[in-house]
Write a protein that binds this DNA or RNA. Sequence first.
DNA 1: ACTTTATTGTGAAATATTGCACATGTATAA
DNA 2: TTATACATGTGCAATATTTCACAATAAAGT
Lengths: 211, 211
Amino acid sequence: MIKDQKIPDATIERVALYLRPLEDLIKLGVHVISSDRLAEMCKVNPAQVRKDLSYFGGFGVRGVGYNIHDLIFEIKKILASDREWKLGIAGLDDMGMALLQHKNFFKRGYKFVAAFDSDPKKIGQRLPIGLTIQPIRKIKPMAQDLGIEIGVITTSPLQAQVVADMFFDAGIKAILNFSPIHIRRPDCCLVQNVDFSVTLDQLAYRLSKEV
Amino acid sequence: MIKDQKIPDATIERVALYLRPLEDLIKLGVHVISSDRLAEMCKVNPAQVRKDLSYFGGFGVRGVGYNIHDLIFEIKKILASDREWKLGIAGLDDMGMALLQHKNFFKRGYKFVAAFDSDPKKIGQRLPIGLTIQPIRKIKPMAQDLGIEIGVITTSPLQAQVVADMFFDAGIKAILNFSPIHIRRPDCCLVQNVDFSVTLDQLAYRLSKEV
DNA sequence: ACTTTATTGTGAAATATTGCACATGTATAA
DNA sequence: TTATACATGTGCAATATTTCACAATAAAGT
Ligand SMILES: NC(=O)c1ccc[n+]([C@@H]2O[C@H](COP(=O)([O-])OP(=O)(O)OC[C@H]3O[C@@H](n4cnc5c(N)ncnc54)[C@H](O)[C@@H]3O)[C@@H](O)[C@H]2O)c1
Ligand SMILES: NC(=O)c1ccc[n+]([C@@H]2O[C@H](COP(=O)([O-])OP(=O)(O)OC[C@H]3O[C@@H](n4cnc5c(N)ncnc54)[C@H](O)[C@@H]3O)[C@@H](O)[C@H]2O)c1
């Protein structure tokens, strides 16, 4: 275990990535894996895998490898994804609905417990998942009642900051933002942006550099 | 201009990010911006902004700042997003449909020119955007006819590799993958993954480290 | 003209991250 | 037992990235 050290963000991202192939392997009845093999599956350097994992403690066995079951357990503990997280979502058009309906989040412990929109035509609609769309003024009371921990924003970009502020005001400390704007936030709060256009721009750049 | 140097991936990502506030400013009638102000808007270090931009040439004016119009033009040229890119998409359920309908991609030059699914109930469906859902065996001929450059994958994870291979086989050199698996690819091809669960895991981790 | 103020562009220092290489430990087989 | 093969954990060197700090330059004011 590397003690007292700041863990690189890149490590956190990679470690989350390791989870998927590991879960697949368990399903296939494989129980042990080497850093070499895991590295190959994730297209990273084997030493990188070992170093990433060693930040959190040495759970491998020399000459053998890592017990996959334990590894999954440890990684989830590290990421704090070994528990349930309660999500609220604002903006229930195509994108919001797709996210809400998606089963993977639920499976991984990310549970939508409330849905908000500002459109009178949407408010009151009952969703397949069992929730009813609420007006945004309910954000604060419901966030507190239900213990919402993460706010997901899929409103139009113009409204995203307003909604973010309502989430923050309701005591929510983290936002996953799908709208293409930079959200201003209090120092105590976290924002993680997902912007597909930026991802496409990166692809376009890399494509154009190819021979 | 910093000559002959490898441009960090992080720079490419940030530069794509700078685009949005710049476009907003133009709309507001602002024509010049300093690295300080742009940095503040994007929550990065001002020197970082200057260095990022200087990789591509010095288009600022000392004592004045950057001409926003020129900057947008230069950034788009850098990213190769100053032209149209043709996209094909496979997997037209919630996620695929949301992407297809989304107007921002179109506005930024990313145009869906074909849509594929394997579900007989979906094949033949006419989409609002003017396309008809095609069977996946049409990927190769249509990719070549229409000149598809980027393949978007929103199929179920189990089918994602198969579809990716069909894209590669059709001569498509870049894939934007939304399914939660690691796509194997030929060396000549690019894959960019988008995995919201990983993003949520990162948020969960950071939340759990807060005081 | 000169001074002041603003702001870029970039070497160089400071940090951060990655990858190598090998000592160390485990398992297996002879 | 001992030898052999295998694979982790990590110090350290190699790279990469970020940030500082300041000379260079432009504009505005006096
Ligand atoms: N919906 C979300 O919010 C969300 C979020 C994150 C990731 N994803 C991922 O995006 C993908 C799509 O998710 P979804 O929610 O739209 O639902 P989904 O997985 O039900 O949809 C899959 C679609 O792909 C089609 N398909 C299956 N095999 C195919 C093949 N071989 N060729 C072409 N099409 C094929 C199916 O007919 C269906 O239309 C999944 O991999 C999912 O994990 C979805
Ligand atoms: N659809 C996509 O594929 C896609 C892709 C990338 C990004 N996005 C982004 O995700 C967001 C949502 O996109 P969309 O395609 O679902 O369509 P959209 O922008 O049409 O949907 C916006 C939804 O938010 C609701 N809304 C508006 N103001 C609100 C407020 N103040 N409070 C609560 N709800 C409010 C609207 O009623 C509507 O239901 C947008 O910011 C978009 O740029 C979407």
